[in-house]
Design a protein around this nucleic acid. Sequence first.
DNA 1: AAGCTGACTATGG
DNA 2: GCCATAGCCAGCT
Length: 109
Amino acid sequence: MSDFFKKVYEVAKQIPPGRVTSYGAIAKHLGTTGSARMVGWAMNACSSHYEFVPAHRVVNRNGLLTGKHHFDNPNAMNELLENEGIKLDGDQIVNFKECFWDPGKELGY
DNA sequence: AAGCTGACTATGG
DNA sequence: GCCATAGCCAGCT
């Protein structure tokens, strides 16, 4: 397990319920700005992590659930988010701006 | 071993 | 405001 993956999970697990963040925000927090894809890749490999990782709280910068198809059930992501009080319009987070949780701002740089 | 792919983002036309 | 391009870098074929 590389430190990068470990850090990604570290941050992801700190996302409060009912809040979401973006891949880029996490990447920036880790100091690997521009490598947002790697954050996504880490999420793809989150199943190999020994603990649960709330990958459903990580979306792209538009608040679009682009990663839903990587779950066992594509609807799982929507249901989990709505269950946490996040309003969705299809795969789009309606109140994305209000739900957004910035790791850099919340955890400090 | 070399090339392709991808849960992304920023920028320019 | 939408489409095309270009960086990003680990894993898979």
